[in-house]
Structure formats: C-alpha cells, structure tokens
Nucleic acid binder design. Structure first.
Length: 262
DNA sequence: AGCAGTATGGCAAGGTTTTA
DNA sequence: TAAAACCTTGCCATACTGCT
C-alpha cells in the first residue's frame, strides 16, 4: 500500500467480501481508474472520524470522487442492499435462519450540526434534532432505519418503518417495542401485517438503568451507531443521507465481525 | 457516444466576525 | 448595538478532459 494506514481502513480481506456487492463501472465509456478499495477506505474514514467531505485527507482519491460514489451508491440503493446481504451472511454464520423472524424497534434523537442545511421539521419540540427510527434483529443487526425530524413521535414513524420492513423481510412476524409504541400501532400491525407487536414494559418500582429482555439488544445497536463520529451529530442536509451512514456503520460492523483483522 | 474523474462555483442556512 | 459581511459545509449543477 502506498499511503500509511488509517485505523478506519478496511482490511483487504474485508474489502474482498465487499467488492462483489458493489456495482461495476458501466461499459461503453471511460474505464474506471480509481481504486474502489481506496474509495471505500475514504468513506469509512469520514464515517469514523466525522470530518467534512472537503477535508478528506489528500492521500485518498479526490473528495469529489469519493463523495460521488457515496451519493451514487446511496441513490441506487447499494448501501441498503449490501447491508441486507451481510445481515443474511452474518446470521448464517451465527447458525440462524438468514431471514429474521423477530425484531426490536426503537429510536434515538441526536442534535443537528449548526450549519447543516435543511433540517427535519420538528413537530412541537424546539430541539434542533433528527430522530433515527430503527429495527434490529435478535442479534442487534440493522434491518431498517428511517430518519425524521426530532419531534416525530415513535408511534407516528412506526407504521412507515414497519411497512418498509414488511416488504424486505417476509419471515418477520414478531416485533418487540417499548411503551412509546403503545396504541394504534399494535392493532394496526396485527391487522395489516399480521404481526405481533409486543410491548416490553419497564417493571414498576425499578429506577435507572434496568436490563429488560429484548430491549438491550436494540439499545446496544444504537450505541454502536454513535460510536461513529459522523453519527454522533447529524451533519447531513437530507435525512436519507443519515440513513446511508447508518447502513454503512452497520456494514462496517458486520465486515469486521465476518473477517476480523488479524 | 458516453462514462469516469476532477474542478468550479453556486445555493441554503446556520454561525461568527467586522463594521458603521 | 445592530447591521452587514464573511465563513462553513452539505448538496447540486455544469463543464472539461481522458478514454474506449
């Protein structure tokens, strides 16, 4: 390797697993010359270190190029597709059916960076935030993420989230949720999707952090996301971009789990 | 012809600094 | 002290060049 390594770099082995899942260059024009490995390392650099695109270190390909790939793979659904593939792969390795039958739903609000362009619209609350609604499987792997303005209530986002989920994961039929999802969602999911949404209640009398079965899994996943600096705040102009970063964080996690660095 | 890589510049919407 | 000017950074459009 020409340049010195960053701790955010993928290993060659991890990239070998990832590469076949990425679109190849189209024929009929100028052939692709940048090294996709370097592009992916650059994207992982931004994810882990949270730097602005324009400040991408110069030993990576030009930031416009890296940003271009990031956008393209976002628009054509590559990140999401790669995530879904790796979820299946990771589950198989864990001796589970590749298609999950149960998931946990939760959300997390983070502050927006001051100069981020268009923000999500906050309903009611004045906090300048974005909310990440997500569903993970029993292993805590990311199945779907949906980003809204900070004021959107969980029970409002849930039907949209579960609707997307139903299309992607036909085997799903059981969702664990917390008290914030009490109400219509439960009956809606049962009626429309044929799913059971089970509320895991906080045991009355207990205070502070209490481990509740099926809840700590998704809470741990949320913590995984915020370990990436790009995701500790919301720097993005568009909610879909935050979703892309979430999938990338998930992808990185699974790549490391499947091919640990020696 | 048409794709790939890069540069350039502008917009939006905040924040900060300078100026009147 | 208020207004104006400037900076920042995601996002977008466009253009230019190189290549098959």
């Amino acid at each position: 390797m020409r340049r010195q390594r960053y701790t955010s770099d993928l290993t060659r082995q991890q990239f070998k697993r990832l590469e076949p899942l990425l679109p190849t260059g189209k024929a009929g024009g100028r052939p692709r010359t940048v090294d996709l490995y370097e592009v992916m390392c650059a994207i992982m650099y931004v994810l882990q270190n949270g730097c602005a695109w324009r400040n991408l270190p110069h030993d990576f390909p030009a930031w416009e190029t890296v940003y271009g790939y990031f956008r393209r793979f976002q628009y054509d659904g590559t990140w999401e597709a790669v995530n879904r593939f790796l979820v299946r792969r990771t589950r198989r390795k864990a001796k589970r059916d590749p298609e999950p039958s149960a998931g946990s739903i939760d959300s997390q609000t983070v502050r927006c960076a001051p100069q981020a362009g268009i923000r999500g619209v906050d309903a009611g609350k004045k906090t300048n935030g974005r909310k990440r609604h997500l569903v993970v499987d029993a292993l805590g792997l990311l199945l779907v993420v949906y980003v809204t303005g900070g004021g959107v209530q969980d029970r409002v986002a849930a039907p949209i989230l579960l609707g997307i989920l139903a299309k992607r994961h036909p085997r799903l039929k059981h969702i664990w949720a917390d008290g914030g999802y009490l109400g219509e969602v439960v009956t809606w999911a049962e009626k429309v999707l044929g799913w059971v949404v089970e509320i895991v209640h906080r045991i009355s009398g207990q205070r502070g952090f209490v481990v509740r079965p099926r809840r700590w899994v998704v809470e741990r996943s949320l913590a995984w996301l915020t370990r990436c600096r790009r995701l500790t705040r919301d720097f993005e102009g568009r909610p879909e971009t935050t979703e892309a970063w979430c999938y990338l964080a998930s992808i990185r996690l699974m790549l490391r789990r499947l091919d640990p660095a020696a």
